[in-house]
Design a binder for these strands. Sequence first.
DNA 1: TAAATATGCGCAATCGTTTGTTCTAGTATA
DNA 2: TATACTAGAACAAACGATTGCGCATATTTA
Lengths: 347, 347
Amino acid sequence: MVQSKHITLDNIANQIGVSSSTVSRVLTGQSKKYRISDRTTEIVQQTARKLGYVPDQLARGLRTKRTNTMGLIIPDISNPFFSSIARNIEIQARKVGSSIILSDSQEDTQLEIESIRLLQGRKVDGLIICPVGEDSKHLKSIVNSGLPVVIIDRYFPDLDCPYVVSDNYQGAMDAVTYFFEMNHRSIGYIQGRVNTSVNNDRIRGYRAAHETRGLPVDESLIVGDSFGKRNGYIGAKILLAKSPRPTAIFAASNLISLGAMTAIQEERLKIPDDISIISFDEQPYSEHLATPMTTVAQQTSETGEIAFKLLQSQIQQDGKQTTEGIVLPAELVYRKSVKKLEFAELQ
Amino acid sequence: MVQSKHITLDNIANQIGVSSSTVSRVLTGQSKKYRISDRTTEIVQQTARKLGYVPDQLARGLRTKRTNTMGLIIPDISNPFFSSIARNIEIQARKVGSSIILSDSQEDTQLEIESIRLLQGRKVDGLIICPVGEDSKHLKSIVNSGLPVVIIDRYFPDLDCPYVVSDNYQGAMDAVTYFFEMNHRSIGYIQGRVNTSVNNDRIRGYRAAHETRGLPVDESLIVGDSFGKRNGYIGAKILLAKSPRPTAIFAASNLISLGAMTAIQEERLKIPDDISIISFDEQPYSEHLATPMTTVAQQTSETGEIAFKLLQSQIQQDGKQTTEGIVLPAELVYRKSVKKLEFAELQ
DNA sequence: TAAATATGCGCAATCGTTTGTTCTAGTATA
DNA sequence: TATACTAGAACAAACGATTGCGCATATTTA
């Protein structure tokens, strides 16, 4: 293999005595358009192949203003919910020859802002962001700058930008309604980060379910402030210490329920006999848990695919967005973590 | 905000009446070296900040031959084992201002090869690869090309390239030995992709544990051919159908054990009463499973961090690698999925 | 006071591609 | 035979940043 270093268009051009522009045109499939002869075309292609030419995307991007690269900013890629989305974005990207630059914002708005800067410098064609905070100032400024952006998992009412989210309202409503149907009346809610759309919508669903039944919401049953495992643990500890103890817990994420389970275990309580639980986020392991978990499943692979396609079309239309937002249904997956209370058990 | 479009060095230079080279030198912190006056330095910095200058990494990379970008090729980013590694790589990268281009090879060698090409074109400074197949030809050719590469999770004896792997041999040995200590004698092994170093080493450990005890290996107890969930399901089905049935199953990955659990459930068997199981890969949910799972824990975050640092130092030393390979211990996490057999239960 | 050195910065080439324009033959048309 | 096309390809200017070298002044040294 004569792969001395890096083969450039000029290398090829010199090798066969044509100009680099000719080589470029052939290799980008513009032979016809620029009337390159079949013979020349053939020779160029052969030589390129023989030398193992790989076009320099930096140079190309510099010239064309298109890098076929997209930025993906995720709060925590190790969370299977996000990594599943990421995977589907990557798979779509590959299909059209795009690459994904991954940025883990570590649930930190400051890092998120830094990531945006970084990715802008890398001249990504567009950005898919799962924003971490309540504030959308930095997002607004980048959307205004004309860079195509798609938001996932969250949305901001005052931000004019396409988004893909689950129907968190309906999902929470269904879950809590199901609790009601199983005769639960005291349902704790371990929420995620407050003031995010995800959380707001789920809370709204939680309240709406109560309202529909004409039941008041006990505000002291709403605890927590993050989507992490630790918060699940703490939230459950608090809920379980109340008396009377709530009979059910609604956990706002897979990590929250994991933490909650640890707390429940520590208190030597059994699911669902002592406490019922429903968790947002279906996971491969949900059915294999000590008590198979009733969950609210979000469509992660669809989220990824749609987000990418939304971004793509936005890029192709040169930043002009046509779609407003897409809401994907969230579906309750029934398992064993909710007990049907007999009326005798109710206080 | 006067962020018309993209601010370049020239924009700044014109604005304040200096040359773009001066601006460049100031902004890259070379004022002293090139004797730029404090006054000029100050003005340049202010103007750059005011205009919101973000250096074009494409142009910079084209000129400097350094992109501060690394490629990461992973078989399945939605697998928490890999996403955990990916996360730690990204966190390290961020610390030094590097970006990660993520490529999901979808367990397909062909896609892996494509990914390598793609990333080469994007002029990554280096590559971290978790190779999917048994073949290392394509890896060898890229290592020879001088591009810094670090292999993770696997290694190839004939490939001169730094790697970071778990001590799969020891991990498997410990697991199987523990089975023996609990009086198991018939231990099924649901293996992953054959002929990968991971699998080879685990098999070696499995065999060595037998050998140490002077016990023969029943080859029919070694089943399976992939690290996926489906294979776990099928493998378990096969093992459970044998008679006499093995008393224990060693699952070569988190996904395999997940699949195996489904099969075990279908057969209406209980862990550990009817069948004991140990799984490779510790997961956040391991302790919350129907039967808390005894696992072989790999150090995923360390793997990511070390891999990145290995790559970094290789890049800084301009491709000359000094390290051979790093083996991280794998630790048995004891839980409840292994039953101590009474001798009466042995055939 | 002449020579030497220091200070502060600009010139212009370069990285590898793309692309609008131009150039040169050969061929067709009038 | 002069003119007009056409085919085929080269020229050269970008894109934005970096960097070796050079060029003026200003200051110091002998």
